[in-house]
Design a protein around this nucleic acid. Sequence first.
RNA 1: GCUUGGGUGGUGGAACUGGUAGACACGCGGGACUUAAAAUCCCGUGAGCCGUAACGCUCGUGUGGGUUCGAUUCCCAUCCCAAGUACCA
Length: 938
Amino acid sequence: MRTEYQFREIEKAWQSFWEANEIFQAQVNPEKPKYYVLDMFPYPSGAGLHVGHPLGYIASDIMARYKRLQGYEVLHPMGFDSFGLPAEQYAIQTGQHPAITTEQNIARYIEQLKNMGFSFDWSREVRTSDASYYKWTQWIFMQLFNSWYNQETDKAESIETLKTILGAKGSIGLKAVCDEEVTRITAEQWNAMSADEQYAYLLSFRLAYLDDSVVNWCPQLGTVLANDEVKDGVSERGGYPVEQKKMRQWSMRITAYADRLLRGLDEVDWADSLKEQQRNWIGKSIGTDVEFAIENVSDKKIKVFTTRVDTIYGVSFMVLAPEHEWVEELTTPAQKEAVEEYVNWAKTRSELDRVSEVKTVSGVFTGTYVINPMNQERVPLFLADYVLAGYGTGAVMGVPSGDQRDWNFAKHFDLPIPSILDGQKDIDKQADPTKEGKYINSGMINGMGYKEATNTLNAWLEENGIGKGKVQYRMRNAVFSRQRYWGEPVPVYFKPTASGDLLPYLIEESELPLELPKIDKYLPTETGEPPLGRAASDWKYKGQYDYEWSTMPGWAGSSWYWYRYMDATNSGEFASKEAINYWKAVDLYIGGSEHATGHLLYSRFWNKFLKDLGYVPEEEFAKKLINQGMIQGRSNFVYRLKDSAKVTFVSHGLKDQYDVAALHVDVNIVENDVLDLEAFKKSRNDVPADAEFILEDGKYVCGWEVEKMSKSKFNVVNPDDLIAKYGADTLRVYEMFLGPLEQFKPWNTNSISGSHNFLRKVWRLFFDDNTNTSKLVDAPATPEELKVLHTAIRKVQDDLDRFSFNTVVSTLMICVNDLGALKCHKKLVLRELVILLSPYAPHIAEELWAALGEQEGSISYASFPAFNAAFLEENDFNYPISFNGKVKLTLAFPVTATPAEIEAAVLANDQVTKHLEGKTPSKVIVVPKRIVNIVLGK
RNA sequence: GCUUGGGUGGUGGAACUGGUAGACACGCGGGACUUAAAAUCCCGUGAGCCGUAACGCUCGUGUGGGUUCGAUUCCCAUCCCAAGUACCA
């Protein structure tokens, strides 16, 4: 029998062993510290996994296994974000229920994941589309519906506390996050309301609420599209026109949490770029709302938001967004034509046009003037598309001296550019946004500095009822309805009031889950209602009330799933108190950065909400987050002669001598950029058997380029193929060895043989390939062997603690190379080496662990080797001796030598004297156990 | 434009708080073993230069400056690449 490294048998055997013995099942175990390693769970797409997907899973699995070795109770689960569009689209085309497609895809994913040897606790697998899971997504929705945000306590509270407050004090002066247009009422008014009226009033305060939202409606497809399904104003699929349509939609008041979402970022260990993205997305700005009166219009005032109220005396014009609702009314007859023309032109401009033409100035005068409340000056009112209707109040005060855009605008329309600060420089050439200096030409703030001026103005404006300090956020509330089938039903039905208005009511908690009804077709109804409307005739609450027909968005199920893993089969709670209090939050979360402003923001929102209600203990759900970099494709090309009677391909190195066209070639038939000619001829029908190849050095060399990994570019590498050829352990080691986890990098199968050879070298430390014998011996380790081993122990531990997965691989390679050179086959040493290797290559590690005669069954629960610094101690240190920073030689000195002794010895050395060339050193720097530098004057 | 990363051999990358730049691996070249191949092992491999040779010299981390005894690492300026983004008042 050969004992050569038989990875196929080894990997299958250990995967079965792990599964049969439930090796990776996590328990609530207060005896041990816990560690929760989470991967962003995948959407199970029909294409299966490519080599890019497992990258993050490998890293998280290494951490999970490493922490187990360190004695932690590790929770490392996997599941599926299984609601989503592709399955629904497939259902529309084929009529097959999305659940069936989803089930098939998941089965494929699980098979692929199991082949990789991940240490997931599969007993905790979750699927967002299972009713037993979405029951709790619906339950959280109900909690949100039953809550309001109290700004006094700065947290969400039960709607019952709001009723009490309204009954006692009314809503005048109530600090709550609510609909903007809500009418403020007294306690008497509240108490005088009917039950239905009170219920309707409360809807404006609930964290889940109904609102008219603008959606991308595509009449031809009869459906609502997400922003990224719309390209250049038409649907990505089919290219049909898309219009903006107002629809009654469920929304979530995420803006209530804007400030906490911002503050929480300081607590978590996430990449700066990611935090910055979230900060930008939330877009907090502190400023002032100011009302400007309009000349000859008494019933309206224009409200502007400014972050620089201190510049208000420098206002020389005012601008409204072209979409502003008062445009028509505020245009004078003389300007009517020009304004209409401008508004129509502005409508044709896409978002892209607006962004790309930043430098051009456009606008039109309305003919109307507004009055600056500070100095009663008449200021012309313009329209310009640099002002956006969707941000702030849709109106901006123009201060050309301090804002470059305003300055450009003023120059273009020949408006005055008054100076307001003595610190402003060259404002005839450009705007100067400085806050330095004292105010001039500025009425009541003349002579003041920035801070004092701002405070003075805010106080005065508030006192006179003209303005007010305000915090403005860019972030909008989150639309929560989707006009789709394959999502969670919203647990709401509509019941008419006495006057016939429909009000939304929650179903009873005991009636959860509200399951998706069966429907005949997965399209909207003929009247444009969502697909669930098709079930309406026999899908009614208590047999009489219509349910909500829209479903929840994709982010609903993924905004709390890490809690379900803690107690995945609990039917009475989303997770038990005991489980939540043990596992608390995710210690390490790994996933792509593309979720920065979606999933990661919504999840933080729901987590904070659940904490407010006392269901979970932590304000932030993921303490540490690593974004793995995307793996890009590396395409290969062949070069076909353009004018040649016979089909002819020329090798990469010679292609410049011919007129050629580059064609993608399947990377799976190319090795080290050398094309497998036979496979190539078979792979394509457009390559005849007698095709000719112009070779270099007897080989056909392909060109290459980095592109996105995609089928159309023939550069998709399937992990299954690599596992079949090299084994999962090799693939795991190689993916980590490729480079830092966070970095974007192209996939290149070329050097995978290096990782495979490494594992074979490990194998050969244990077994002789030729004589079929074990080389293991029971002998005490030499100091040299211990030094090699402990150098590796220290570095592996240090590197894993800072998530430097790639350098661990080279450390292990060095260790194995060194032990090989020392011909070390001692059990005591190799035992520790195998433990170090086991997080990366768990199958071979288990096999070798068994070969060592270990009785413990699985290496997974061995102890991580204890580092002993004593083995690394040296008597001498080899000092590099440098002259003016350039190293010329090295000299060994005892580590106990003092700098003075070293300096004396160095200067007395013959070689050093030779390098001095008779010069006298002006200075000698000795850094103990580092370097000696001799400074020579010029 | 702004924000955040990043530019190191033929390639992927290493160098943890400033201390021998290029670890480790791929690729390539040479050699041993073999009838041959595979496998394995050994040697070499940043560029340029001097010499018969041991050895030695010069340059070198996008570019230009600076700080320092000493800079891939810190500072300033600048160019290029990637991701994100908002004309945000």
